[in-house]
Amino acid sequence: MGDYEVLTAAARPYLSTVLARALGEGLPVTGTEMLDGGPAADLEAETEGWIELDQEAVAHRYGAKVFDLTVYWDALSGWHIQAERPGSPDGDLYRWMGAGLVPAPERVTTFIATMLVDYTMTGSEERPFYRRVRQEVPSLTQRLRPYGS
């Protein structure tokens, strides 16, 4: 099994744990998805995943200003949000949590809850990089391992 598959397998339960906590807190989340980067994929990180939000709730909160609001995790920079803003002269907005690659699920759900209040002020515009592709894979896998139990 290559680095891509190992990281995807290790990250999937972590995202599921974050999703379960968000659901328990009543946040409008609906599921998770993971992409295994693989050597041919067009991803910056070996793997990435996201927590899907109820876009009806997003539309109720933000109206036509935001087409899609999603919470992503990747194996290089951790958690961030992406807001697709049709017609905005600035285009899509990205905001980074900046709390490491594997912050506690309660920190992530706080990030999500804050994003739902005001996504433009959540996190930072500065993208952090906590590791490089194909480096420190065993260390990251080890940090994700407790969520696989």
Rank of each mutant, 00 (worst) to 15 (best):
R61A: 08
A40E: 08
E56P: 04
V66I: 11
T122E: 11
W79A: 05
L19F: 13
G148Q: 06
R143W: 07
S16W: 08
R132M: 04
A45Y: 03
W96P: 15
G87I: 11
Y72Q: 09
V108G: 05
G91D: 06
V6S: 09
R127S: 03
V137T: 02
V18M: 10
G2H: 13
M97E: 12
F129C: 13
S149E: 12
H80A: 05
L7Y: 08
V6M: 12
R131E: 06
G91T: 01
A83T: 02
P103C: 06
Y147C: 02
L15I: 03
D92N: 11
A20N: 12
V133M: 15
L15D: 05
L69Q: 08
T70S: 13
Q82N: 15
T8D: 06
V6F: 04
E84D: 15
P103R: 05
R61Y: 01
G2W: 09
A20Y: 06
G87E: 00
E25C: 01
V117H: 14
L76M: 02
Y4G: 12
A20Q: 08
L116T: 00
R95Q: 02
W50Y: 10
T32F: 05
D92G: 00
I51N: 03
A75E: 12
K65T: 06
S77Y: 04
V58S: 09
D68C: 10
A11P: 05
W73R: 13
M97K: 07
K65A: 15
M97R: 09
Y130A: 11
M1K: 10
D68H: 08
S16F: 05
T122L: 14
A104N: 05
S149W: 10
A10H: 03
